[in-house]
Each structure stands twice: as structure tokens, then as C-alpha cells.
């Protein structure tokens, strides 16, 4: 299966020795031109090619990783200002803030809305994820792809590395996906949730990253028009307001 190193080296126009040393991590800095040629030789998608360049960036040029930086109050207010489900995530995909509709949509029935959540850990290890997420495998791929990108951006972030190790230890499905090179669809896509009471929620997710920040991510789950998904949010909000009256 796959290509031999010699074939990759030939296709990319580099020597076998040089390619081998890159793969073994024995080359200090790989030029962007070589990375682009390798990506082409391996028929990398644009996202995969971008990931090659991200991984090769020298540590000094990588984003600094202040793990667990608290979210600024104004970022939390930003999440609250969206009418669609919105959350602020750390590089390890811990939810540090989420607006009310996000929490109503995601939280298992009967559990506290403020409970600590990690999107990838919960997806693989929480039984409720198999109830809520309509296409669990699609979500698993997207989660692993997103975590792979974050691990590359924050190679010294202990939370990211700990989470990867925990999931490698505890989930065979995670181990299988982590061994593959998938980075596609890590920042956007269309998914569905099956809320036990409110019904099917079809959404497009997008991620926004404030520039020059601690690596915090704002993620939005926008309902797809014509799918009845806005009504799901309306139902959950009405139910919540009845309960708090």
C-alpha cells in the first residue's frame, strides 16, 4: 500500500536521502518550495498542503501557546451576541464560553448547562454524543482533523498534547483516525444533531480565529434555512424560558 520513499522523492524532485531525512525529522528547516513539491507528489488537498507548511514552520514562528488563557470578557460577550449557537474554544477544544442556545442544544438532558466540556473528548468518550450527533463518524473525522491542526499550531501546549494522549489511550476509534493524515473539513462543514426533544438540527459550522490572540477560536453552528432547524432553537429557547419563569 502507498508509495515508496523513492517514488515520492522522484515525483518531488529531491534525493531519496533528503526525503528520508525529512520523514525521519532529521532536517532542520524544509523550504516552502520543497514542501509544495512534496504536497503535489503526494496529491495533497489544499488543506493537507497547508498543514505540511504549518508543521514545518520553525518553533519560533509558531503561535505561542499560553495554555488555558482565560477568555477576555469581550470575547464572551461576542459569543452571547450571536443569535445562533456560538462558543469560544481553546486550542485543545475546551469550551471556555458558550451562549445560551449553544448550551441548550449540546448539553445532555438533566445535566448542568455549565458543566466543563471538551468537544473532541466528549465526542469519543461521552455516550450521549452517539445519541445527539446524527453522523457520529463524520463528526469524529472533523473533530480529529480539527485537533490535528491545533496540535500542529500549538506543539508545546500541554493541554493539547495531554488530550491527544488521553484519547489515544482510551479510544480505539480515535487511534485509527489519528493515524490517518486527514485535515480536511477542520474549520467548516455541514452536520446534523438529533436532539431528543427538539428534533433534527442541521447546521453549517464555521470557525473564526481572532488574529494575534492566545489561539482561542469562536465556533458558530448556524441553522440551515429550510430544514426546520431554526424552529429547533426556538423550541429549546421557549422550553428554557418556560422552565425559568
Amino acid at each position: 500500500p502507498g508509495l515508496r520513499r523513492q517514488e515520492v522523492a522522484d515525483l518531488a524532485g529531491v534525493s531519496l536521502d533528503y526525503y528520508t531525512r525529512i520523514e525521519q525529522g532529521r532536517v532542520g528547516e524544509v523550504s516552502p518550495a520543497v514542501l509544495t513539491a512534496l504536497g503535489r507528489a503526494l496529491r495533497a488537498t489544499p488543506e493537507e498542503s497547508a498543514h505540511l507548511h504549518r508543521l514545518a514552520a520553525s518553533p519560533a514562528r509558531r503561535r505561542s501557546s499560553r495554555a488555558q488563557a482565560p477568555a477576555r470578557p469581550s470575547l464572551l460577550a461576542l459569543a452571547d451576541s450571536f443569535a445562533v449557537p456560538a462558543a469560544v474554544l481553546t486550542p485543545s477544544l475546551d469550551v471556555v464560553a458558550a451562549n445560551l442556545v449553544w448550551r441548550l442544544l449540546i448539553t445532555p438532558p438533566g445535566q448542568s448547562l455549565t458543566r466543563d466540556k471538551n468537544l473532541v473528548r466528549d465526542h469519543f468518550l461521552e455516550p450521549y454524543a452517539r445519541v445527539l450527533v446524527a453522523d457520529w463518524s463524520l463528526g469524529a473525522r472533523a473533530g480529529v482533523a480539527g485537533l490535528r491542526v491545533q496540535a500542529a499550531l500549538h506543539p508545546h501546549d500541554e493541554r493539547v498534547q495531554q488530550l491527544v494522549q488521553e484519547l489515544l489511550d482510551r479510544s480505539e476509534e480515535f487511534r485509527r483516525l489519528w493515524s490517518m493524515p486527514d485535515v480536511d473539513g477542520s474549520t467548516h462543514g455541514r452536520h446534523r444533531l438529533l436532539h431528543p426533544r427538539a428534533g433534527q438540527y442541521t447546521y453549517d459550522y464555521e470557525t473564526l480565529q481572532p488574529p494575534g490572540d492566545e489561539g482561542l477560536i469562536v465556533t458558530l453552528f448556524s441553522p440551515v434555512p429550510g430544514t426546520g432547524s431554526q424552529e429547533v432553537l426556538d423550541t429549546l429557547l421557549a422550553e428554557h424560558h418556560r422552565g425559568t419563569e
Binding site: P1, G2, L3, R5, G25, L38, L55
Partner: peptide, 21 residues
């Protein structure tokens, strides 16, 4: 193994048979 070498190896191992030739 989330580094460049591991990612290249995974891409190389993934390449589908119909691509080779």
C-alpha cells in the same frame, strides 16, 4: 507523532492504488 515526518508518512501510505503508475 503529530510532526511533519509522521504526516508525510501517513500521506505516503494513504496513496490510493489507482494513483500509482
Amino acid at each position: 507523532g503529530a510532526g511533519l515526518g509522521a504526516f508525510l508518512r501517513a500521506l505516503r501510505n494513504r496513496r490510493r492504488p489507482e494513483d500509482v503508475g
